[in-house]
Amino acid sequence: MKAVVCNEYGPPSKLSVQNVEEPSIKDNEVLITVKACGVNFPDTLIIQGLYQVKPELPFTPGSDVSGVVKEVGSSVKYLKVGDEVFGFVMQGGYAETVAVPSNMCFKKPPKMEFPVAASFMIAYGTSYHALKDRAQLKSGETLVVLGASGGVGLAAVELGKLMGAKVIAVASTDEKLKLCKEYGADALINYTEEDLKSRIKELTDGQGADVIYDPVGGKYSEQALRAIAWEGRYLVIGFAAGDIPKIPLNLTLLKGCAIVGVFWGNFAMKSPQRNLENTQQLMQWMDTGKLTPYIHKVYALEEAPAALEDMMERKVKGKVVIQCT
């Protein structure tokens, strides 16, 4: 089979498409023919050896997959050969076939196209887990989303609005903010033109944000934290800016706030039943048209390095997808 292979840590240009052996499956896994694989920002870090998880070389990146079941492990009862599915793997998604743990593989609704299904699991799974489980977001609260036009950010905007929050979207260009507005944002902040802390305070009548969703990190994290409300919750999603901020901890004391880590992948593995319940809720919203993943562009398997380059250069709004077969 064909797969994108990382033989050495480095930029996307170091990746190559190679013929490799098809993976074998364990009793609790299914082998799927991959139709599409979502590109996520952590993929750009993993191939450089900069992520908290470092796979052994060589490896194939890619986690957010959709496709058709080709083979079923002996202990798998609810999936069969031919089922159209989507799921999550730690690595291996940029390939023609991949082995997926059965508890992380779900039947795809018939109306959901494969690229959309491959854009769903990480972005919406992360954002819903963050807002529901970690922040316990309540209707009527104010949610600020940094990096709001990206994959997880746009999902957080959409979900936050669906959950009854007032949503303030933060992004670097007016074009990106226009998309956030279309996805339900009540107010917009262009942080390249406005002071982030002051603008959040202004938009919340001086009260600050109840929940701040931060997949970006870098120099704007402290500014945002300084604009959090009393007993607010600051969600640490990731560090797309590249820099991990050093936060003055006295701010948590003064604000009576909580800084909360969000690692959806570990949550999904350690709490599969809770993750299943979250996924079922998301699928219900998706099926009734309340959620609509935004696909920026679909790339061929051979174009995976270009997809990752575009992600790294902040050219992407919403999700990009690799078509694998």
Rank of each mutant, 00 (worst) to 15 (best):
14 K>M: 09
285 W>G: 01
250 N>F: 13
52 Q>K: 10
62 G>H: 10
141 E>N: 08
153 G>H: 06
184 G>K: 13
212 I>A: 05
282 L>W: 09
312 M>Q: 15
238 G>Y: 00
325 T>G: 13
131 L>D: 11
182 E>Q: 15
17 V>Q: 05
25 I>K: 13
146 L>D: 04
284 Q>E: 14
251 L>M: 13
157 V>T: 11
312 M>R: 11
146 L>N: 14
223 Q>N: 12
120 F>T: 05
94 Y>A: 06
240 A>M: 07
253 L>H: 14
193 E>F: 05
56 E>Q: 13
207 Q>S: 11
274 R>V: 03
175 E>A: 15
78 Y>N: 14
43 D>H: 12
226 R>V: 04
56 E>M: 12
301 L>D: 12
218 G>R: 06
225 L>A: 11
113 E>R: 13
272 P>Y: 09
130 A>V: 06
235 L>Q: 07
237 I>K: 04
211 V>Q: 02
161 K>C: 09
185 A>R: 04
27 D>E: 15
140 G>W: 01
129 H>F: 13
227 A>I: 10
49 G>C: 08
262 V>I: 11
44 T>C: 09
132 K>H: 15
135 A>V: 06
180 C>L: 09
90 M>H: 10
52 Q>D: 05
119 S>I: 04
263 F>E: 12
241 A>R: 03
235 L>C: 10
256 G>P: 06
278 N>G: 15
105 C>K: 02
74 S>F: 07
234 Y>R: 06
9 Y>D: 01
149 S>T: 13
149 S>D: 05
127 S>Y: 03
268 A>R: 12
300 A>W: 03
22 E>V: 14
18 Q>K: 15
24 S>M: 12
229 A>M: 08
34 V>L: 04
315 K>L: 11
196 L>G: 08
174 D>H: 11
40 N>K: 01
125 G>E: 01
251 L>D: 07
297 K>T: 13
23 P>C: 12
323 Q>I: 12
173 T>V: 02
54 K>N: 10
211 V>D: 00
93 G>H: 01
4 V>W: 04
197 K>G: 00
284 Q>K: 15
291 L>W: 03
273 Q>G: 01
72 V>R: 11
182 E>H: 07
102 S>F: 04
71 E>A: 14
150 G>S: 15
49 G>W: 08
260 V>N: 02
130 A>D: 03
222 E>R: 14
20 V>F: 08
21 E>A: 15
207 Q>P: 00
254 L>H: 02
134 R>E: 14
211 V>Y: 02
142 T>D: 07
304 A>H: 08
151 G>R: 09
75 S>T: 14
248 P>S: 10
88 F>H: 05
81 V>W: 00
249 L>Q: 11
211 V>R: 02
52 Q>N: 10
226 R>N: 13
163 M>H: 07
313 E>S: 14
256 G>D: 07
177 L>C: 12
320 V>E: 13
216 V>P: 00
295 I>H: 03
30 V>P: 05
173 T>M: 01
168 I>R: 06
151 G>D: 08
214 D>I: 04
82 G>W: 05
124 Y>F: 15
6 C>A: 12
63 S>T: 10
311 M>E: 10
138 K>E: 15
79 L>G: 10
120 F>V: 09
36 A>Q: 01
309 E>K: 10
43 D>G: 03
20 V>R: 14
322 I>F: 08
298 V>F: 00
24 S>W: 02
8 E>C: 00
221 S>M: 13
10 G>M: 05
